[in-house]
Design a binder for these strands. Structure first.
Lengths: 351, 351
DNA sequence: GGGTCGCGAGAGAGCGCTCTCTCATCCTGG
DNA sequence: CCAGGATGAGAGAGCGCTCTCTCGCGACCC
């Protein structure tokens, strides 16, 4: 297959010819070596500018075995990725941290099997130095392993399903979060406490429920559990089911703020006051939680920090030569096998 | 800078050695040439499998001058990109179409100047074969030009600010959309018609307002115009300002569904009925529009098709060798300098 | 004043591929 | 039975870089 006929971009060689020096010298200048005479360096710089020279990443990568690019793969349906501020914060944190290390973060949002496979091939082809995996479902359990075995450094966001996989991860302390929510609702005197869980093919959903259940102990009511999938719609639907079955619940713990918001819609629509009739605790502390009506009591997780920490864990493995300033707030060194970020209860009006 | 010490991934050479053939033959097998004896091909396949061989994209790109990768750059704050279903659909369409052509779509979401510059450098480094630019603001006006001049094929989503730039684009017929909205509100007998515009540093916002204004003619009321920025929050705030200034408006055209939803919240909160007291028309026809309360009358644009069309326009320039089946619904050939997709009024309950 | 040192520039190999060219082998027809 | 094609495999150059090694030249010391 021949290359398309667009004009060739200038190469090092072209710059060298124009500046009247060797390829090696241009390379030195472009890469900021200090061993070049300033007169010559200036001449090279001018040539670079005049030709609009941009180093070819493929050629560089070929010899350096490094692209300075990191992939973030969100194995999740587009709608959820885009609808959920959680992703936005992760991406924000990861981009920030990658940028600080001089690396480019590129995003992959495969929605179907074939797209996931294409992305996997891409990542395995050496086009990136490592991959961040977020929003892992039980069905995706093989991806980290495959990549890892293929020699691609991987860090997972959230607790992986298969923990003996020996792939580093950064999780939030979801169990404690579930506990804190339950504790709060009990503390304000609620007795018939229902919960809307997250997807149960995701560890975040599982762990939040586990903490909630453990804290309530005997008071836990299996009949007041409804399953959602983290989205507002699913929270709304789950709340409807819950209220139909148990109209007298006096509290709801939703495993995400979005679901809590959906639940509140239903509560209002059915004439219930929040928190007077039904108290609501969410999870995440997304931005709108504070400005909701009523402002949402919720479990705050440090999502941007999670994104940053994931990048740090990856860099610790791929670029041990890089000396990064310590990242405040981390509960361990970036060389750790995994990190669990603390969560906290944020008391607002809804519970 | 030395490469990190991870074990080298298997190369063509390694596969060749294991299969007892030459590098050229392995290359042929891997690339599906038919001129290889099936016994040998099988042996090669086995070696590929045993070694977990994956062709190195950088090496390939170096000789092919092609990476089979497309970039999609959303010059937009994360929050908006993630909050708006518009992006989700564009990405969906673009991914689909790229995949059909065997190409990988990678996403860039630079939020700050430095991140944009990093992404620009990346794209200019030959790491991708072309770039799709969406959500262009007036401030980003230089990006298409820079990339284009650097030899990177570019397609813009939406009408670019600088139209004599000669960069292909795919727009929605926003002017007609604005007209249809106005016509509808007039048709149902509204007289005091306000509007919540989109960002006025984006052509979509400008054009929708222009169409709306043109259709209303004399009936256009400059004092009933409030500016939003496409998001639900901004729509809510704009509606509040509008109602304060003109409590007797009997219709609102919002330049996005999200803003229409925000406006409806305010209307309900202030005790107004929709559509009885105030009719509302949105724009986009996002998924929740149909299930909103009341279901939203809106202007439907074909966002996924827009994403697909953008990829087509790009491929027509970068890969004229590719023979793709015609894409239904396009108002012109993929070789056109630009495409404007038709919009339509969707009549629901809100107006 | 000659030898040595260090600085700064160039030569050249090689990263992992693709692709053209060459060549060996086997089959076919006269 | 041998010339002339097919057919299919290998050799080798080269894509645009980086980096080591080499080398020229001026400064410095004894």
């Amino acid at each position: 297959m021949p290359a398309s006929a667009r004009p060739r971009r200038p190469s090092l060689e072209d710059v060298a010819a124009r500046a009247g020096v060797s390829r090696a010298t241009v390379s030195r200048v472009v890469n900021g070596a200090t061993t070049v005479d300033s007169t010559i360096a200036a001449r090279v710089d001018r040539a670079v500018h005049e030709l609009g020279y941009q180093p070819n990443l493929s050629a560089r990568a070929l010899v350096n075995r490094r692209t300075d690019t990191l992939a973030l793969i969100a194995s999740e349906s587009d709608t959820r990725v885009f609808g959920d501020p959680f992703f936005s914060r992760i991406v924000q944190g990861a981009t920030l941290e990658a940028g600080a290390a001089g690396m480019q973060l590129v995003l992959f949002m495969p929605q179907e099997r074939t797209e996931l496979e294409r992305a996997e091939r891409y990542v395995r082809s050496g086009a990136v130095d490592g991959a961040l995996l977020i929003s892992q479902h039980e069905a995706d359990v093989r991806l980290p392993e495959t990549l890892s075995r293929a020699g691609v450094p991987v860090v997972i966001g959230g607790r992986p399903f298969n923990e003996d996989l020996d792939v580093p991860f950064v999780d939030n302390d979801n169990v404690t979060g579930g506990r804190l929510a339950a504790r709060r609702l009990v503390a304000i005197g609620r007795r018939r406490i229902g919960t809307i869980t997250g997807s149960k093919d995701m560890t975040a959903g599982i762990d939040r429920l586990a903490g909630f259940r453990a804290e309530l102990g005997e008071a836990f009511r299996p009949d007041l559990v409804e399953q959602g999938e983290f989205t507002q719609d699913s929270g709304l639907a789950a709340a409807q089911r819950l209220l139909e079955r148990a109209p007298d619940v006096d509290a709801i713990f939703a495993a995400s703020d979005l679901m809590a918001l959906g639940a509140i819609q239903v509560l209002h629509r059915t004439g219930r006051r929040v928190p007077e009739d039904v108290a609501v605790v969410g999870f995440d502390d997304i931005q709108v939680a504070a400005s909701a009506a009523p402002p949402l009591t919720t479990i705050r997780q440090q999502t941007a920090l999670q994104g940053r920490a994931m990048v740090r864990l990856l860099l610790a493995r791929t670029r041990p030569d890089l000396e990064l300033p310590p990242l405040p707030g981390l509960p361990g060194p970036a060389t750790a096998s995994h990190l669990v970020l603390p969560v906290e209860l944020v008391e607002r009006a809804s519970a």
